[in-house]
Design a binder for these strands. Structure first.
Length: 873
DNA sequence: CACTCCCGCCAATTA
DNA sequence: TAATTGGCGGGAGTG
């Protein structure tokens, strides 16, 4: 392509041709360039005349308009062509320019060519979506600005939004570190959680109230009264005392961006209209909002929306209301993860859990002030690149909150609910999905490091297929992304010589063999309920199988049935795919089985589907699921699928257990998008029942499990295995019951850092041959868990790292010699702070907030659940 | 004309 | 104090 371009370009800009750029870029960006669109990027490289930005600057100075325009055009062209339908025009345009004199060029590049969205795409094209952990990609603002031919100011617009999603972090002046999408799902989860806290109630309302106006008026009032909510929100408002300091921050594009994203994540329809968003984001009450302010907000939202669109997270649509057609954006990014969390947490969040989380989230998001988070460092903490942060000038923001938001969100929801027609915007529709697929087998990031001694049977080959890079990647099969599909089709990518499978960080899998002991007891009635939520696919495998897997791909017939059964299994699988994340409404009584059946009308199923739709590439999930299926899973699924056996999930499970000797079993949850951020590991021994076969159901948490951030998993092999059985399990809601012991590994750990978690005991990384077995779980899992956790399942939400941290069970190996991470990269402190439970945080404020909200939250949650259950959309 | 949103002034923050 | 960031809103491009 480069050549091509040059040939094309050469005539135009002789000067520009310099190879150097290429080298530069390479240096900057790791090899992996994303997708085709990236190519576009490549062009820019060639374009850049000078290796040094300065030079460029000079040149541009010399012949400002012309040069810039040319550059821009060139840069843009590729993108436009690929993305936009206008192509024809643009092409002509380009051609003309090329051939003709500069004069033509002067016809300024259409405004579109200068759009922030386009610029952002160019920007993104320069960096891999999933950079290797080893490579640190630093972004020099000056350089990027010069290369892209724009003023720095514009780069800030992009970077700020990216930073809000933790795709980049500020390392130093003029320097940002590119993280890529590795943490995106986690970030989104967090945002979702935070969003739920802030806006969750609204959702409920919307459901109830159909009348928009009603909301505006009365609802607003009602909501306001909840003073407690306020506390949750850290966003300081201008009025606050600290206003001066905070004011800027408050309005910051970053925060706006996060809030904006939250709205999407909270919204059932995933559609948010600009005006509503603007209203919500405006601090003042809606009524007071003056027009100018509103206008300004909208402008900003466009800026943010452009970037998000470039990221492939949203797309433009129009909603038709009574009043007319309004511009809106629809979330097309991963959704499930969020759902999962909910589910996991259980509907019934204990009062504690929710608040806590909320608090944590809040901190991150909002508060810059308090902790060192100034720049959202909290999120970044784990990342290698992290560097100096700006000082936080002021204190904690005043507790403030925007009631408005709530009601705005309500409104939004209502609107959505009310039935608006949504039209995709033609403009954006063409946008290609930004995600690059990089599930490269070889990629270090995705590969699990082999332990010196393969302790565990590693994930079977089957598994590998499962893991895809974050939800998106999983979708590879999607037609749009042929390349991906190919790779993925292959089942597991094993790294040569390595016992472990490579998988994208997001993917989940797992397993360890555990002992079986009480398993049966574990199957609880709850399982059924929970089952719904619970992981879709779980399988119990005989030990033999495990071994096989470990060493070899699943192809081997470890389990008789496993290998074959494709069709039926697939179907089941698909459903199962849905990650826990999906909001599966917990339905109280429903047995999972129904869900398990494909096509069932179960609400959960519906949701799942919906999500899929939302996903950029709908097809992907299925494929992913297929791939992902393990033999075990397949078996299970097959069983589930079997019409013959519709036994309730619990029974089902138990049955299996009975049939098969308990031995080390593996359970893995598919890494669907929802799950992407977290991985669950269940010991086989654990209550199988808990993990209902039913695909969509969430497993009951009663089972001891370990949740690990996907990132963590990716980097190293996990060992876990709480073999103990938990007695409790009867948590009706399926939330993780107290019984379940859960350990979270912190994402904070650098991906590279190996983490081992065992419910019972610690395992040294290298050593654990059979950690699970060896370690005995204390009788009561609760011990390990923080009180909070024990109390409320909800607290345990998968996603929230918050919960993590309980020292006892968790082992963090901070710096394994093996990992190259720089000391900086590892920042336990941050993480801890970030994730800590409120109690651990010790932040009084947060704590208070939590408490205050607890009751409320719980109620809201339930409401939500109900709603979700009933309305599949 | 309504939407979008580019552009760049200039203030807040940092270094 | 100089430089970096980034809020903000005028007003232009687009349909």
């Amino acid at each position: 392509e480069n050549i091509f371009d040059r040939s094309r370009m050469a005539p135009k800009t002789p000067i520009k041709n310099e190879p150097i750029d290429l080298s530069k870029q390479k240096g900057c960006t790791p090899e992996r360039n994303p997708i085709t669109p990236v190519k576009i990027i490549d062009r820019p490289q060639p374009d850049p005349w000078t290796p040094t930005a300065n030079l460029k600057m000079l040149v541009s100075a010399a012949s400002p308009d012309m040069r810039d325009r040319e550059k821009k055009k060139e840069l843009f062209r590729p993108i436009e062509n690929s993305e936009q339908s206008d192509t024809p025009d643009s092409l002509q345009y380009d051609i003309v320019d090329d051939t003709t004199v500069d004069e033509f060029e002067k016809q300024r590049p259409s405004r579109k060519q200068k759009s922030l969205g386009l610029l952002c795409q160019k920007f993104l094209a320069r960096y891999p979506n999933y950079p290797l952990s080893t490579e640190k990609t630093t972004i020099s603002l000056d350089e990027v600005a010069s290369v892209l031919g724009v003023e720095r100011r514009r780069i800030y617009d992009i970077v700020n939004v990216l930073e809000s999603l933790h795709l980049v972090s500020r390392v130093a002046k003029n320097q940002y570190c590119w993280h890529g999408r590795h943490n995106l799902s986690q970030t989104l989860k967090m945002l979702q959680e935070a969003g739920e806290l802030q806006y969750g109630e609204l959702m409920t309302f919307q459901h109830k109230e159909q009348d928009l106006e009603y909301k505006f008026g009365e609802r607003k009032k009602e909501t306001i009264p909840h003073s407690q909510d306020r506390s949750l929100l850290d966003f300081s408002e201008p009025d606050c005392s600290s206003a001066s300091a905070n004011s800027r921050k408050d309005k910051s594009l970053r925060i706006m961006s996060q809030k904006f994203v939250m709205l999407f994540l909270v919204s059932k329809t995933k559609i948010v209209t600009l005006d509503i968003a603007a209203k919500i984001l405006i601090e003042e009450t809606q009524d007071t909002v003056d027009h100018s302010k509103f206008k300004t907000k909208v402008r900003r939202l466009y800026d943010i929306a452009n970037v998000l669109t470039s990221l492939g997270l949203i797309k433009k649509v129009h909603v038709t209301e009574e009043r007319g057609r309004k511009p809106a954006f629809k979330w097309i990014g991963p959704v499930e993860f969020s759902r999962k969390t909910d589910e996991l947490r259980g509907d019934k969040p204990t009062s504690d859990s929710l608040p806590e989380r909320g608090a944590c989230a809040q901190y991150q998001i909002c508060a810059a002030g308090k902790q060192r988070f100034t720049r959202h460092a909290s999120f970044n903490g784990a990342q290698p690149c992290e560097g100096p942060r700006r000082k936080v000038s002021s204190e904690p923001n005043s507790p403030h909150q925007e009631r408005q938001d709530e009601y705005c969100s309500k409104m939004i929801n209502l609107a959505a609910v009310c039935g608006q027609k949504i039209e995709e915007d033609t403009r954006n529709s063409s946008v290609t999905s930004p995600f690059s697929l990089l599930p490269v087998p070889g990629d270090s990031d995705f590969c699990v490091n082999p332990l010196p001694q393969a302790v565990f049977p590693v994930v079977p080959a089957e598994v590998p297929s499962l893991s895809l890079p974050i939800g998106i990647s999983s979708q590879a099969p999607h037609p749009s992304m042929p390349a991906a599909s190919k790779t993925e089709n292959g089942k597991a990518t094993l790294v040569p010589n390595q016992p472990f499978l490579c998988f994208p960080s997001s993917s989940l899998f797992m397993l360890c063999g555990g002992l079986q002991e009480n398993n049966l007891s574990e199957t609880l009635p709850t399982a059924g309920d929970k089952g719904n939520r619970s992981a879709e696919a779980q399988a119990v495998v005989p030990p033999a199988v495990c071994q096989k897997r470990s060493s070899h791909k699943c192809t081997s017939p470890s389990s008789p049935a496993d290998d074959e059964e494709p069709a039926a299994k697939k179907l089941t699988v698909e459903q199962s795919d849905l990650p826990l994340s999906l909001v599966v409404p917990k339905e109280p009584s429903e047995s999972p089985k129904a869900e398990s059946t494909p096509g069932n009308g179960c609400p959960s199923a519906v949701h799942l589907e919906t999500y899929r739709l939302d996903l950029a590439s709908p097809a992907a999930p299925e494929a992913a699921s297929k791939e992902s299926l393990d033999c075990q899973e397949q078996e299970k699924q097959s069983q589930n699928a079997d019409p013959d056996e519709p036994p309730p999930g619990n029974e089902h499970i138990s049955k299996e257990n009975a049939n098969q000797p308990f031995q080390p079993q593996y359970l893995y949850v598919q890494p669907t998008a929802g799950l992407s951020s977290f991985n669950f590991l269940f010991s086989a021994s654990q209550a199988p029942g808990a993990i209902s076969l039913a695909a969509n159901q969430l497993p009951s948490l009663s089972v001891p499990c370990v949740m690990v951030p996907s990132a963590a998993l990716a980097s190293f092999p996990l060992v876990c295995s709480p073999s103990f059985t938990s007695p409790l399990s009867p948590v009706p809601d399926g939330s993780f019951s107290a019984a379940a012991s859960m350990n979270f590994s912190m994402s904070s750990l650098a991906s590279t850092t190996p983490v081992f978690i065992s419910t019972t005991a610690m395992v040294t990384p290298k050593v654990s041959p059979a950690p699970s077995v060896d370690l005995q779980q204390p009788a009561h899992p609760a011990l390990h868990l923080s009180p909070v956790l024990t109390r409320s399942c909800s607290a345990v939400k998968l996603d929230s790292p918050v919960c993590v941290g309980h020292p006892v069970t968790l082992l963090k190996l901070q710096q394994p010699s093996s990992t190259p991470l720089t000391p900086k990269s590892i920042r336990p402190a941050h993480h801890e702070a970030f994730f800590k439970t409120p109690g651990s945080l010790g932040d009084p404020v947060a704590w208070k907030k939590n408490e205050g909200n607890q009751t409320r939250n719980a109620s809201s949650v339930q409401r939500r659940l109900e709603i979700s259950g009933t309305s599949p959309d």
